[in-house]
Each structure stands twice: as structure tokens, then as C-alpha cells.
Amino acid sequence: MSLSAKDVEKVARLARLRLNETDIEQYAAQLSQILDYAAILEAVETEGVEPMVHAIELANVWREDEILTSLPRQQALQNSPAQDGKHFVVPQILDAS
């Protein structure tokens, strides 16, 4: 599996990571190497094996529909890089992000 610089750029866009040329080159080589190594999994017979998503397999964990205290607004906003005392503030949102 060899990743091109173009592949890496595409993944970086998907992951919203701004990378420089050197990063892209390096990641292309390193990710290719790791994916090559991961190819050993293809040797494993997995026919009929259920994927294991959870380390301990539970089901039906609920909470009741009861209101809990929300955070005061000031705490909800306290870590925001930009806020107006009521909202989180971001640059004008265009249709695509």
C-alpha cells in the first residue's frame, strides 16, 4: 500500500489538518510503511467472525428521562476562544465548511 502525496492531502482535508510540504512527504512514507505492515492481517482467516467493537460486550445501558442540572452559561463558555457572553462565536459560516 503506497500513499501518494495527493492521497495524504485528501486525508488531511478530511481530517481538517493543515500540513506543510515536509509533513505531507513524511506522512506519505510513514503511513505507507504502517499500512504495509497492517497488511499482515490479510493472512488471518476472519470468515464468519463478528467484529469486536467493545472490549467488554454489554447491552441496554440506559438512563431515565430525568432532568439534571445544566452548567451555568459562564462555565459552558469559559473555554471558548471567542464568545460574546451568550454564544460561541465563529467566523461567518458559509454553506460549506
Partner: peptide, 14 residues
């Protein structure tokens, strides 16, 4: 950043 998409990529990249 110049717009929202930029803000994401720059903030995460840095």
C-alpha cells in the same frame, strides 16, 4: 485563518 474551513485546519494543524 480567513474563513471557517481555514480556522479548523489551521487550529488543528498548529
Amino acid at each position: 485563518f480567513e474563513n471557517l474551513a481555514d480556522l479548523y485546519a489551521a487550529s488543528r494543524g498548529e
